[in-house]
Nucleic acid binder design. Structure first.
Lengths: 165, 165
DNA sequence: TAAAATTCCATGATATCCCATAAGATGGCA
DNA sequence: TGCCATCTTATGGGATATCATGGAATTTTA
């Protein structure tokens, strides 16, 4: 089975910017790092630009590679490619878990998403997000109400069954 | 034969949040976990967000993987995909039965559905649900009365045979 | 050399494992 | 067809490991 990022959890951010990555996510990061071996700590990538500026997105090495490959398929020098490279390559950084399963968020990253002394991790399948708690709640509320306003045939749950395997 | 989740049963939730999963359901979970082997314990997934907030829903690995695969077909960063991942990945968690066939419900999960020291498991074919007993009874009653108010051609029993494969 | 970043150690809380038991279900056999 | 032996299930308690978090010590770097 390929494990995916699932679940949400709240973590303290200390004065140095250290945060624990949820234990369940670590397993996924380990599986997704081809260079990982027992006893070491997995590498992964954090994208801080992205479509939305309001959260950080963490990718395993293998899932960011998929995205990189897709970008490489776009014509060199095309505007599209340039934009995506800007967001996904330029505005991202490698990270490594420390021995206790933490990462450190630089001031730059913290400011980017307005984080104080708490952070919420949210699993999103092939990636996870890091949010400032209040912003996260707003995001959920917004999502909820936009979901409620959808018509029957806009409902993504129902659309799922129309996709073919 | 592909076994399905069938039947309902009531179980104690102890101080640590431990509950026995009905033995019949365990067989289904075992069959639905590609990594399961005799002697080990099956993994599965509990979704706690979903369209309805009033119960937990348990899926086998293989049935949740089907959903995950469909979601992965949607364009990355699309609204639809985001909504579905929020409901199905973010608001869910991996679970593993222990040797005696139990799982532990975290406080978070218990609060989510208002569970005290008892829980009802209800088989729903490809998934099962976990309810606080009183809420479950209300749900049954509501379903009953809404069913009674349906006209002939709204009756799902009758619609069943009109579907084609 | 001062500030920043990284490594190392410590600890309480939580979750997980391991063992125990009683009741019920199952099946064999007289 | 009634009784006994055995297995499975549901449940509880205690021991142990993992996790989240904080602080000190050491290294790096500007």
């Amino acid at each position: 089975m390929i494990r995916r990022f699932r679940g949400e959890s709240l973590h303290k951010v200390d004065a140095k910017g250290r945060v624990s990555v949820p234990a369940a996510f670590r397993r996924v990061l380990e599986e997704g790092d081809p260079d990982f071996s027992r006893g070491s700590s997995p590498n992964f990538v954090i994208v801080y630009g992205g479509v939305r500026g309001d959260c950080l997105e963490g990718y395993t090495i293998s899932s960011i590679s998929k995205v990189d490959k897709l970008i490489s398929k776009l014509p060199r020098f095309s505007k599209d490619r340039e934009i995506l490279e800007r967001f996904i390559n330029t505005q991202s950084t490698y990270m490594q878990l420390d021995e206790t399963g933490r990462i450190v968020l630089s001031n730059r990253l913290k400011e980017k998403i307005g984080i104080g002394d708490e952070a919420i991790f949210a699993g999103m399948g092939e990636k996870f997000q890091i949010w400032e708690p209040k912003n996260y709640q707003n995001e959920l509320n917004a999502l909820d109400s936009s979901f409620k306003n959808l018509s029957e045939d806009e409902n993504p749950f129902l659309k799922l069954d129309q996709l073919q395997d």
